[in-house]
Every structure is written in C-alpha cells, then in structure tokens.
Design a protein around this nucleic acid. Sequence first.
RNA 1: GCCGCCUUAGCUCAGAUGGUUAGAGCGCUAGAUUGUGGAUCUAGAGGUCUCCCGUUCGAUCCGGGAAGGCGGUACCA
Length: 493
Amino acid sequence: MSKPPPRLQARSPRGFQDLSGHAVRARTKMIATIREVYDRYGFEPLETPALEYVDALGKFLPEQDRPDEGIFALKDTDEQWIALRYDLTAPLSRFVAQMGQDLVLPYRRYQVGSVWRNEKPGPGRFREFTQFDIDTIGTASPAADAENCAVLAEALEALGLKRGEFIVKINTRRLLDGVMERIGLQPGSADPQSLCVLRAIDKFDRVGIEGVRLLLTSGRKDESGDFTKGAGLSAQAADIVLDFMQAGQASRGETLSALARAVANAPSGRAGLDELEAIDRILANLGIDEGRAIFDPGIVRGLAYYTGAVLEAAITIEITDDEGRRRQIGSVAGGGRYDGLISRFTGTDIPATGVSIGVDRLMTALSLAGRIGASQAEGPVVVTVFDKSRMADYQRIAAELRAAGIRAEVFLGEGGLKAQLRYADRRGAPVAVIAGGDEFAAGTVSLKDLIAGRALSAEVAGNEQWREKSRAQVTVPRGELVAQVKAILQPPA
RNA sequence: GCCGCCUUAGCUCAGAUGGUUAGAGCGCUAGAUUGUGGAUCUAGAGGUCUCCCGUUCGAUCCGGGAAGGCGGUACCA
C-alpha cells in the first residue's frame, strides 16, 4: 500500500492576489473614471504585449549574460530573453521607436495594464499590479508637464477626492542638478555619490530631517539595527542639500523665490527655475491652484531616467486601518520627463514626459478612507425554485426581469426555500422572488425585500416578532412583476 | 538581501513541565419554524497543532533546519 499523495496546496504565488466580485467592480469603475478624464484631454489608447525582449526593457546585464534581478524573465524557443514588463514606459518607448515616421508627433497616449516586479512584496506592495499611464512624446514644452499635473488632479477629483484631500507635488531634476553642482558633484551624472544623495532626499518621509542629514554624511543606523552607508558629504554640503529640500512653501511663487536663493549661480539650477516658472504659469492658465499642485523640492522620484520635471500625487486624508492604527498612504501616482529614454532605440533624443497612476494603491487608499463603500446589494434578484416542476415559470420570470434590465438569476443549487433565501441573502440579493402553489393558483408572485428585512432585523430583537413572516414581503399580481420589483429597487424618493 | 517576531479548526486566537480524548469566540450545517434569509436558543460537523530531521519510552510542546506569514530595513525602473 502506497501512501496517498500529499494533497495539493491551493495558494497563489506570494505577492500575487485574486480579485473577485465587489473588488473587480470597484476597480473597473475606477479605471473607467480615469480613462474618461484621459480621453477628454485628447490622449489615445494603446495596448502593448505583457512580454518584451529584455533589452527593450533596459534591464539586461550583458556582463552576466542574464537579465537583471527584479524582473520576471524567461528564454523563448529562440534562446532570446524575454520578460514581463515592469512598467508601461519602456514598452511605450519601444513602440514609439518602432513606429518611427508613421507616428504623428506629439503623440499622446494612455495605457492601463498589469506590470510585474520580481521583488519582495510588502504591505500594499504586490508583484503584479496595475498602472494607468499617460505620456506625451515629442515635445519638450513645459506645457506637457503642466498638463500631466492637471490631468492627474482632475482624475483624482473625478474619483471623488475633494480639494485638500490630495496634492500634486512638482519638482525638477534640473534644480537637483543645480544643487549637485553647488556641492561639487557632477550634475546629472550617475555616479554612486550623486545617487546616494538623491536617495537620501527621497527618504525624508520615512527618516525625517535628521535621518536625511545622517544619510548625506556619515550614514545611518535604523531601528532594526541595519546600517545604511552615507554619501560622505561635508557638513556644509549637507546643509545646502537640506536647505534646498526644505525650501517648499505654501504657494508656488514663494517656493520659487526660496529656490532662487538656494540654487543661486548654478547654470542648471537656473534652467530648473525657468522650467518651474513656466509650469506655474501654465497651471494657472489651466485653473490648477495651489490647493491642488505645489512645488516641493524634496520630490526626487526613482533615480534612473528622469531628466526634467518630476511629480508625485499623494493622498492627504488621515487614514486608519482595520486595527485602528494610523497609516501613511504615500504617493499614488508619479512621473516626470524622460528626454533621453527613447534615444536608446533611435539614437536621437525624443523628448517625452508622462505620469502613472498606481491603480491598486489608489484603490487601497480610497477604500481605507471609506470612499469605496461596498454598496449593500450588488447581487442579482434571486428567483427561488419552490417547485421544480414549474421551472419553466421561474425561468420566464427571470427572463422578464432581465429584459427590463434587472440582474436576475434562477436558483440553481439544491435545497429548500430556507436554504435558497439564505443563499440570496449571502449573494447580496436585493429581492427574492417566491412563487409556490398559492401564488400560481392566485396568479401572483411574492417579492421579498431583503434589504428592508435586513434593516428591520437590526432593530427588532424579540423572539415574538420573529414569526411575522409577511414582513418586508409583498404579494403582487403576476403581471406587475417587473414594475413591482423596480419599485423595490428604486423606491420613489 | 539583512534584522526581529510569528505559524494550533474556514477565520481570530487560547493551551498544557514532554503523557489517554487539544479548547473558545466567530463562521459553517441542522433543528426549534412541514412555504421564508438576517435576531434568539439547542445540537452537530470540522484538526497532519506548517513541514523535515534530531533528542526521548513517548514530541503539537525541547533542539536544529526548511517553508510560509507579519513588521522593519536595503534595493526599487
């Protein structure tokens, strides 16, 4: 006798999640809302494959002859490395380069889809998640960057966020270059020290100002005992960086004045100021005030390919999780200008700028903030099967409801009326249709208002009333079925 | 990657010094109610105590390892 094989474990890969029912509906709706805004600004839809050649993603490590860690890669039958896209920007760049002359520039496109990252999942961080991007290819005008901010603000408002519940923060890499120049680093270069400085600024949210100071100079030991090496700046150089990143003011104009002092004299800093001034004017023209978009010199974004304006959107609502702990919902969208990215394919720079909404994160934020209420009865009207020999009647009832645009289903499981009503209850059905011998004899149907009944049971505790079975139930002529169900679904105001 | 904590019923968690039969609440199933969900009461079902190796007469409990989870942190296009 051999042992029975061990039972298969049903589990999804770590960092991957299932979405069902309400979650899918809510997300679909969110995407539709955002799409509507993107559309209105004149962006065109684009879809690209989930897989790309790994060199198109820019993450191939030639010296090791294998793709970078952090992406899901595999070899196809031609021994070529292909990988799941980790964002929508690299595939867009490839598409633009591949289209060449056939693409009318400036090209403005939107795209929504899953991206995959092969790294450790964390709270609210998955290995597959959805991004919804807009990008404008082929213009260096700050108007495109300003529009990114405006679209973003408008999309967030369309999702029900009010003024003051979110903020778009804008900065530019050119100012950061100006700071680098002042402290004697090569502006715009990718040397380890510059990257370390940028990373330190990026961590302000988590480690605070003194934490950043340590990271800029000698290094920092965190609570878990882990030591992070510092950038090795002098105290004076660190002060310059710290002053710069804290130069943000409530109004864009004030921030510009403060920044003018902080990056004085550095040529790239001057270019950055000009850029932000232009963005400020355009935002004003577009009607985006300072309650929605501000300049924040502490915004750095990623580290690789941004060349100019960078931006981030944050939800500012105070949020508590299931256990009542306060939770920081960080940025829900981000992006910037990447004028050098497409030249990897074409050899010539094509200016480009875009922004990406993290759909899952935004969903999490909105539902934690109570903005995505599970509406209480999303289920269909359930037609109970009292008498199996009358199945044809039940199916006709369901068909009539559907023809009137009402979601309806005939109960397909096993069990008596009690089990069927319990099923209807759990399905979130608003109404159960009941028709047995009495109803058929009288030419009627009974409609049970499950929502009203649910509300009643909350207030009545006594055992006596329990058997008043007519509660929240009406018996109506069969011919009035649709009208009466509609009356229950949409009570006259 | 590094540090810390955790893993017992579908879920949240108790528990015994290493000893027969491992518990609670919620949920689930059924009945009270032969045609009625959601309240209440009663009963019932449900367990490889994560896995492997070791110590032991005997391990869910002790030791080692693995896997998974959680929380930091690093990297993050």
